[in-house]
Design a protein around this nucleic acid. Structure first.
Length: 548
RNA sequence: GCCCCCAUAGUUCAAUGGAUAGAACAGCGGACUUCUAAGCCGUUGAUGUAGGUUCGAUUCCUGCUGGGGGCACCA
């Protein structure tokens, strides 16, 4: 639909003597302005030095003609917007299309020939996954699904930390307590906190931990490496459990230890070419000239920093899964770090750097302040999910439904905001199960499903004279899904689905479906709504319960 | 000290340079003998500050105030 209208506007502009004007075509802020609105006349009149209102009238006239039976009304409003209200039959056709398309409803082709690799979640083994880590997993998975829905061929990657000083801290404390068989992510996480405190307060511990770190890189101490392998396995098992809950899965699980060798090699090679330089025994990238932070890539102890590993990973990804674009999703505290890494990569491999994009997610913060695993005021991801599930059980004791509702609430909370901005939540009040929330969307769907369970017979006859508000919203779904993918902004889809659920709930409250004169048509609307909601929730990773 | 980000209602969030700045929660007030009240309807209430660009600024630019993040051997 959107494409047809765009084409008509292009043609009309050409005919009016204003070809190639950039314009916006959007859903107007208020339904009374119609189904589509364009500023084309404003833009063109500006360029031609004409009166916007008069030009808009001319354009509206031409458009009405070109759209023929699609257009019910084409009107000029405000400073010179051209507003298009579709005809009854065109809206009904869109609803029939949504109904018939099923799971294919809303699939796009904008990214059809693209191979895209997306990296997210990036947990640290030897630390417990806390609620903050949910953000990257949830945002990454939603983006992955949106981009896939836009037609791209996608690979999901995650880059886990399994080597480096933080690992040494955890192992140091485990050794201290003579643990040789770590049993839980919690135990390992607590060991990390202990090692971390000792590192900061006890000089002798610091020395031991630093030595341990080098020993892990060297990999020659068999007892130590055995403990490392076991601890890592326990951590990874926990990550996978949480990924499963969130519906995330990865084609590639990379680890630090996979990237150290190639990262070191590339950086040393860059040193020879003058891209990096030596400073106090370390190999650094001097970012001054490019306006980025100067950072160490290889330490004076000849161990790689995360920066060198990121460089190594970029090459490793390219080797394993060549792509047209590479997306890396991390917390926004890493923005500065990635500017340096990408600046360095641009010097080493310009093409690789050009197709790599860093996307920052917001930080999840407590009302009381920020969480820190060393200070121990963290909420473990697993505990958090369990607590919210518990609260959901107060309304519905069914364990499966409670879990679906809880995950819906958590994912919604994370995805509803503009990407990159911090998320603040109050663990006391916890998070919302009503109003603007995941369960609000789920509940609207469940009500539609209930009607459809009762309904039967063929649908689509008895079309009421004027479209319902819900119909006019449903038909915009493919455009919203496409835009959310293009702008890497799942919140656009969240906002839309919330509005959609509200329109459905209003419809539900005022319109009897079963037994009404327009029953068969209303059933079709209900099915089109359910299809849209199911597909939309799936893109976000929010479960779609059968009952609530 | 330098770099980046942010500031919208009591609170948590929206708003490709465009139309009367939208929701939700909290508050206040309603409806309902009907397909599930995690719902529906009504209502009170906001762009930090001073300028600039523009036909038009929450949006772009500059100063100020306030907050967050980052800045060589941590991730």
């Amino acid at each position: 639909m959107e494409e047809r209208i765009k084409k008509a506007i292009d043609d009309a502009l050409l005919q009016a003597g204003a070809p190639e004007v950039a314009f916006a075509l959007e859903r107007p802020p208020d339904a009374k302005f119609g189904d589509y609105s364009t500023n084309a006349a404003l833009a063109a009149a500006n360029l031609l030095g004409k009166n916007p209102n008069e030009f808009a009238k001319e354009l509206a006239h031409l458009l009405k003609d070109k759209l023929s039976e699609d257009a019910g009304q084409v009107l000029v409003a405000g400073p010179g917007f051209v507003n298009i209200t579709l005809s009854r039959s065109t809206v009904a056709l869109a609803i029939a299309e949504a109904d018939a398309a099923g799971v294919a409803w809303g699939k796009g082709n904008a990214a059809e020939r693209m191979r895209i690799i997306i990296e997210y979640s990036n947990p640290n083994a030897f630390k417990e996954m806390h609620v903050g880590h949910l953000v990257g997993s949830v945002v990454g998975e939603a983006l992955a699904r949106l981009i896939e829905n836009a037609g791209a061929t996608l690979a999901r990657a995650t880059f886990g930390g399994d080597i480096g000083p933080n690992v040494a801290k955890s192992l140091w404390a485990l050794k201290r307590h003579d643990v040789s068989e770590p049993e839980s992510a919690r135990q390992i996480g607590e060991a990390y906190a202990e090692g971390s405190r000792a590192y900061d307060s006890d000089p002798q511990a610091k020395e031991e931990i630093d030595a341990l770190n080098r020993a892990i890189y060297a990999g020659e101490d068999r007892v130590l490496m055995e403990l490392w392998r076991k601890g890592r396995a326990v951590s990874v098992e926990e990550f996978r459990r949480i990924w499963r809950l969130l519906g995330a899965h990865f084609d590639f699980e990379f680890f630090d230890s996979d990237t150290t060798e190639i990262g070191m090699r590339v950086v040393r090679d860059g040193l020879a070419k003058g891209i990096f330089k030596k400073s106090n025994g370390a190999i650094i990238y001097d970012g001054e000239a490019k306006g980025v932070h100067t950072m160490v890539f290889i330490t004076s102890h000849d161990t790689p920093t995360y920066e060198a590993k990121d460089i190594g990973l970029a090459f490793l990804k390219e080797e394993r899964w060549p792509s047209d674009a590479s997306l890396i999703i991390t917390g926004n505290e890493q923005i500065g770090r990635f500017k340096t890494v990408l600046a360095a990569l641009a010097d080493i491999a310009p093409l690789l750097a050009a197709k790599t994009t860093h996307i920052a997610t917001g930080f999840l913060k407590l009302v009381s302040g920020k969480m820190s695993s060393r200070e121990g005021n963290v909420i473990a991801a697993a505990d958090f999910i369990r607590d919210v599930t518990q609260r959901a059980k107060e309304k519905n004791p069914d364990p499966l439904i409670a879990e679906q509702v809880a995950l819906g609430a958590i994912i919604y909370m994370i995805l509803r905001q503009t990407p990159g901005s911090d998320i603040i939540f109050d663990p006391e009040k916890s998070l919302s199960l009503d109003g603007d929330s995941g369960p609000y969307l789920q509940y609207a769907l469940v009500r539609a499903r209930k009607i459809l369970a009762y309904a039967g017979g063929e649908a689509g006859t008895n079309v009421p004279a004027a479209p319902y508000a819900i119909e006019r919203l449903i038909m915009h779904y493919p455009e919203v899904a496409a835009r959310a993918a293009r702008e890497r902004a799942p919140n656009l889809l969240v906002n839309y689905l919330t509005e959609l659920a509200g329109a459905w709930n209003a419809f539900y409250a005022t319109e009897q479906v079963l037994g009404s004169p327009e029953e068969t048509y209303k059933q079709r609307v209900a099915r089109a709504f359910a299809t849209t909601m199911i597909n939309g929730l799936a893109l976000l990773g929010i479960p779609a319960p059968e009952k609530m």
